[in-house]
Amino acid sequence: MSKQLEQKLWFTICGAFAFFTIVALGLLLFSIIREGAHVISWSFITQPPQRNMTEGGVWPALVGTFYVASLTIIISVPVGIGAAIYLNEYATQGPLVRVIRMSIRNLAGVPSIVYGLFGLAIFASFLKIGVGLITAAITLAIMVLPWVITASEEALKSVPTSFREGGLALGATKWQTIRQLVLPSAIPGMATGSILGLARAAGETAPIILTGAAYFSRNLPTSLTDNFMALPYHLYILATQHAQASAVRPIAYGTALVLIMLVILLNMFAILLRNYYRKKNEVL
């Protein structure tokens, strides 16, 4: 076989696999949109489930997801940014920093259901908070922490060293330099990372199964310890736990589509934000 032919063959194989990737994504999106698009309407978004979930919409689940994801970000972002500032601005290379970085990477690899069980043990049982919104949010916050730290650190790394040198050489203290020169330039990147974390928290199911998601709840949560409905858990319930599986199937498709759209929109927003600031920085 000639060299050229061999190359052509292998390039085709690689291309075919890459093509499968697109096809897989296309099939996933297509199947959900085909079955889900006609279910979605304004009332589907704004109505609670009715008649044992065979009718109505996803409003409480959407709100619950919004609550729990927002709380997650409110808890994890300050901590994550703080950790990133320590790692990128204060820490000097050494065994401690190596152990911290190793811990962060390992936390990112801990299975989400293990976080759920951990949250159940420490917050619900040991600290006696019980299961509910806040327990689920803290658990998710711990889960997304490695990503928030990594994204914030990337944002800090992209700030030129010359800003820091310039500030320090003018007699600013380290904290003045960080707060007035480094952080303002890093905030867009941190915002992007936070929104990506929000999207991840919104799509996550396993930890909240154990820490406070409700099968069904007539009312929206009014306190931090209330149980809550959430879109991903709602979809799981509709798909596997409902007695009339085929009757609720259209609603399940609709829920899946709402969830996918929510996650993709959040990601697109984050990416647009990043590109906007990247372009703006290039112009300046």
């Binding site: 990737t21 897989a24 994504l25 996933l28 959900i32 999207a199 991840r200 919104a202 799509g203 996550e204 199911t205 396993a206 991903p232 858990y233 979809l235 799981y236 798909a239 399940a252 899946a256 969830l259 996918i260 996650v263 993709i264 990601n267």
Partner: peptide, 12 residues
């Protein structure tokens, strides 16, 4: 986009 697909949707 594949990376952000919620796992519950894939399960569904």
């Amino acid at each position: 986009v594949l990376a952000i697909f919620p796992s519950v949707v894939l399960g569904f």
